[in-house]
Design a protein around this nucleic acid. Structure first.
Lengths: 235, 235
DNA sequence: CGCAGAATTGAAAGCGGTCAAGTTGCGTGG
DNA sequence: CCACGCAACTTGACCGCTTTCAATTCTGCG
């Protein structure tokens, strides 16, 4: 299950992942604790809610969603994670995972045992600082989501998600104008606090407009700037 | 502006604040970097969005709200902070504050210069771990808010906030059944993604029911258990 | 004591949800 | 490789919660 794969040092995702801004010799220390190349197929779970928290994970390829269940079984999709992004952070304080992570498509992840990581962060101040920063970033993104859910219409929420996915693709050097959604309409709706039907209707409406070409999960954005301004303006 | 006040060691809030689970001699080191007893009057701001990020803050007394502004000036209340709670965390990654913090009532705060704190956390692994935990907790609470905004009705959101305030009061040894809301209806609505009018209507409706006695900002909860079950059940 | 902001209340409209019924697309097994 | 079957997605009709707009009333502070 754990294949030998590229080290952090040689990983193309390094600039956006955990090991950015770390000097080469220290990189080597991180490399020693990271467990690489774990592969999970679509629908398989990476970790379960309530399982003991031992590691955080970096997505190497594919896409992962996390969700949590209310006591009554109601599902809430809490996040989508693309290559270079870190998941599992919300488990640290509870000492167990508080969400379940499943692969939306065949994915590979790097596992970062958290206890050993903490020991390393104590030795490498810049690593500690960077990890503080990653967690802070997560909090900051949650504030953005808060605004999205509190203040934005259904249309704006969907567009914001598309723009976010586009930006994250671009950051990895991929196209921000054409990509495939790794998640279902159901997941999108659940994440954005919308009914599936609403999401579906919005996609068809956007498809009829000039803003977007949608075909199933294939997305094409003719002009990012136009879409962006429609986000707080008019369609 | 900075008075000498009780050290962390003698602070009654220690068990729930930053310095919990730290050994006495290490406590001393924290004590040396914390700037205590800064007092801010109702309506005054503790830090502004876009100002350079230098410290996080622990509330000593009073209540603080944080909010951020969209480019168009639209306000979003992002959090309420009561004694023992830490604010300013979301500024770390951006290197500037991304929200503005204002006092809802006369408050005192302890300032924790973040650079020095980071240096200390490197020397005291358990402090690092604890700070990871505090940030993780913040992420975890954001997930709870996400569910509240995505899935819960207006009534449930308001009740959830009241229950949260009640629990946080109790944690400080105060009454969880009777307390005064530090924030306005406007702030409540803004935080919960509701119109002021909706919040007001809900309070009057709850007041008519047996669940709650509301008079302005004074709240009395006859039976917490009943209110709790009404949260996912029926009123 | 008077005023301004905060809170309440009412009426009407609209956005998004729910329910119900198709339609499409994809993975699986023959 | 094709056909089947189920899950994902779409579409339509209708309903209800919450917002919006507007008008008072209340409260706290100067």
């Amino acid at each position: 299950m754990f294949k030998r794969e590229v080290s952090c040092e040689k990983c193309s995702l390094r600039p956006i992942c955990l090991a950015s801004a770390i000097s080469p010799e220290q990189l080597d220390e991180i490399d020693r604790i990271v467990r690489r190349g774990r592969s999970i197929k679509r629908g398989e779970t990476l970790f379960h809610a309530s399982s003991p928290f031992e590691s955080v994970y970096a997505v190497r390829s594919g896409a992962i969603k996390t969700y949590s269940l209310a006591p009554d079984g109601e599902e809430l999709v809490t996040g989508f994670y693309l290559p270079g992004e870190i998941l599992g952070l919300e488990g640290i304080s509870q000492e167990e995972h508080t969400s379940t992570a499943v692969a939306l498509e065949t994915s590979t992840v790097c596992e970062i045992p958290f206890k050993r990581f903490g020991e390393l962060a104590v030795k490498i101040p810049s690593l500690q600082q960077h990890f503080f920063s990653i967690m802070s970033e997560e909090i900051y993104k949650d504030r953005t989501l808060h605004r999205l859910l509190s203040k934005r219409s259904a249309d704006e929420r969907v567009i914001a998600l598309l723009l976010s996915l586009s930006a994250r693709n671009r950051r990895r050097g991929l196209s921000g104008n054409e990509f495939r959604l790794p998640m279902s309409r159901y997941d999108i709706g659940n994440y954005l606090g919308l009914a599936v039907e609403t999401v579906s209707r919005i996609f068809t409406r956007l498809n009829k407009s000039e803003l977007l070409e949608v075909s199933g999960r294939e997305i094409k954005i003719p002009c990012l700037a136009t879409l962006r301004q429609s986000y707080t303006g008019e369609n």
